[in-house]
Amino acid sequence: MYKTHSKLLMIILLCMTSMTINAQTKKEKKMTTEQKNVLRTIEKMTEAFQNKDIQAVMTSYEPNAVVVFEPEAPISDARVLQEMFTKMSMVNPVFTYSGHEVFITGNIATHIAPWKMTAKAPDGTEIKQSGLSVAVLRKQKDGKWLMILDNPHGQYLMEK
């Protein structure tokens, strides 16, 4: 049972690729307007996830976006992604981030953020995980930034 919940939490962490809803750090205050717009997409998705608003979570992604809930297991089927986010939200994970980097070239952005997550399994067991979130976003014709790749396990190859 713990392994099942651990996998769900790992998925949640992947999805939570780098979002802080708290006050911005000094470095974030130095971001350009477009960098802040990218960060806002991540923050809105995180807030929606923590509020269990899975429809709002899904609007943070382009159709056919890839989410890596577990290393080496990317998922791009929207129905499966919605199911995974729904299941992950049930353990009420709490994410904290120690910083954000946003790099933009043209209409593509990369968001990188170290994260820590705590949650509780249904049996009360505390779950703790951490990682490096790497998300790739594309600017849409209407000016919004949407994720096309969300990998909360960016550190995976270094740990192999």
Score class of each variant (00 low, 15 high):
Lys128Gln: 10
Ser6Ala: 15
Lys139Tyr: 03
Val66Gln: 13
Val67Glu: 01
Lys141Trp: 02
Gln35Glu: 15
Gln129Thr: 13
Lys120Arg: 13
Gln140Trp: 05
Ile54Ser: 00
Ala119Gly: 05
Lys27Val: 14
Leu9Glu: 10
Tyr156Cys: 02
Gln55Asn: 12
Trp115Arg: 06
Thr20Ala: 09
Val38Asp: 01
Leu8His: 08
Lys36Cys: 05
Val134Gln: 05
Thr96Pro: 00
Asn22Met: 12
Asn64Leu: 07
Lys87Asn: 12
Ile11Phe: 05
Val134Tyr: 00
Met19Ile: 03
Leu149Met: 13
Met88Lys: 00
Ala65Pro: 04
Met45Glu: 14
Asn92Gln: 09
Val91Asp: 06
Val94Arg: 10
Lys120Phe: 10
Lys144His: 11
Glu101Tyr: 03
Phe49Lys: 03
Gln82His: 09
Ala119Leu: 04
Glu159Leu: 15
Thr125Phe: 02
Ser98Gly: 14
Met90Arg: 12
Ile108Met: 11
Gln82Thr: 14
Leu8Tyr: 04
Glu72Ile: 04
Ile12Met: 11
Leu8Asp: 10
Arg40Val: 09
Glu101Ala: 12
Glu62Arg: 10
Gln129Ala: 15
Cys15Ala: 13
Lys87Val: 02
Thr46Ile: 08
Phe49Asp: 01
Glu159Trp: 03
Ala121Pro: 01
Lys7Val: 14
Gly99Trp: 07
Tyr2Pro: 07
Asn151Gln: 05
Val136Cys: 07
Ala135Leu: 10
Leu13Phe: 00
Ile112Tyr: 00
Glu47Pro: 00
Ile54Lys: 01
Glu101Lys: 13
Met117Asp: 01
Thr125Glu: 08
Val91Ala: 09
Phe95Tyr: 09
Thr96Asp: 03
Phe49Tyr: 10
Phe103Ser: 15
Met158Val: 06
Ile148Pro: 03
Asp142Cys: 05
Glu72Ser: 09
Lys7Gly: 07
Lys120Tyr: 09
Lys3Gly: 06
Met58Asn: 04
Lys87Leu: 11
Asp150Lys: 02
Met84Gly: 00
Thr86Pro: 00
Asp142His: 05
Ala78Gln: 13
Thr118Met: 06
His100Arg: 13
Ser6Gly: 06
Ile104Gly: 06
Val136Trp: 01
Met84Val: 14
Lys139Thr: 06
Lys26Gly: 12
Ala109Gly: 10
Val66Ala: 09
Asn37Ser: 13
Thr105Arg: 09
Asp53Pro: 03
Val68Met: 04
Ala121Gly: 02
Phe95Trp: 06
Val66Ser: 13
Pro74Ile: 10
Asp150Ile: 09
Gln140Met: 13
Lys29Gly: 01
Thr20Met: 07
Val38Met: 04
Val94Pro: 00
Ser98Tyr: 06
Tyr156Leu: 02
Lys36Gly: 08
Val68Ala: 00
Ile42Asn: 11
Thr32Ser: 15
Pro63Lys: 12
Asp53Asn: 15
Ser18Pro: 01
Ile104Asn: 05
His153Trp: 10
Val67Trp: 06
Met84Arg: 11
Ser18Asp: 14
Glu159Cys: 06
Thr17Leu: 06
Leu146Lys: 12
Lys87Glu: 12
Phe103Ala: 15
Pro114Phe: 03
Met90Trp: 02
Gln129Leu: 14
Val38Arg: 02
Met158Pro: 00
Asn92Val: 02
Gly124His: 07
Thr110Ala: 13
Leu8Lys: 13
Gln129His: 08
Tyr156Glu: 08
Ser76Val: 08
Val94Leu: 10
Pro71Asn: 04
Lys36Ala: 15
Gln82Pro: 02
